Amino acid sequence: MNAVSIGPLVFDGARFAAVVGLLLFFVVVEIMARLQKGDAVRWAGFAVLAWIVAARMGFVAANWPVFAAHPLDALKLWQGGVLPAAGWAGGGAVLLVALLRKARRAALLLALGGAVAMAAHLAVTNALTRPPVTLPEEKLIALDGRGVQLAGRHRPVVLNLWATWCPPCRREMPMMTDLAAHTPGVEFVFANQGEDAGQVRAFLAAEKLSDQGMIRDPHGRLMGALGAVGLPSTLVFDAKGRLVAAHTGEISRAALTRMIGQASGDPR
């Protein structure tokens, strides 16, 4: 998976690349601003804020059918979901304003910092790209004790690695089980990591959630097989069992719907 673990902190690959790009942007602008007089740092703050707002608004607009049914989800920034192209457009708008206000020195530094940030983002993203991954040939355990084979399902599969002690796992589970019930042609598999059937059933009963697709991975083998570094981890495979998209951490309905669309060939 394209995730990074730094001590106790786990970053989704896309978020980690964005953080690296953002830090380098500020470093470049700060260094250059110290060499020259001007208010480039203030403009840099405006540019970053514009990037974040525009990128989020772009993502919400691109996935409006999902957000229309759950509008408050647009405020859940911790779940991820941005459209980088819209973000760069927002940052470019600040650059244009700087030019119109004749803050040419600040505009030059913003352009330089933006170029470095974009290059860093692409470099980190490429570095985190892993070899092709397929649905593991693992035999796991259903809640009733039956053996369950993961591979060979011949349809898109959403595989969620989770545990009842994991707060973001608990928060996203109602959304995921609801999406599973309303997404025909896609199989959802919820692989609990390291807990017994009683713990899983108790959580589902307390939250009034379906046990459809719930299985147990008592020894956490899937995390090693798939290179997962934290929970929750959500992986989407196409009908041939090939990994199409992955996300580490709490995921939004819109982001997961978009990943399913990639696996099924439906742009949604």
Rank of each mutant, 00 (worst) to 15 (best):
G7R: 12
V10W: 07
D12Y: 03
A18L: 12
G21F: 00
V28F: 03
E30Y: 09
A33F: 00
A33K: 01
L35S: 13
A50P: 10
A50E: 06
V53K: 11
A54V: 08
A54P: 10
R56T: 03
M57K: 02
V60H: 11
W64H: 13
H70A: 15
K76N: 13
G87Q: 04
G87I: 02
A89T: 14
G92K: 04
R104V: 06
A107H: 04
L108I: 05
A111N: 03
L112E: 12
G113S: 11
H121C: 02
V124F: 02
N126H: 11
N126T: 13
V133G: 00
E137P: 00
K139Q: 14
L140C: 10
Q149L: 04
V158Y: 12
V158H: 14
N160Q: 12
N160F: 02
L161S: 07
E172D: 06
M173D: 12
M175I: 08
M176F: 12
L179C: 08
V189N: 11
G194V: 10
A197F: 02
G198K: 00
L209I: 01
S210I: 03
D217Y: 00
H219K: 15
G220D: 11
R221I: 05
V229T: 14
L235I: 07
A239Q: 12
T248V: 05
T248D: 07
E250F: 02
I251V: 13
I251C: 10
R253Y: 07
A255D: 11
L256T: 13
P267M: 08
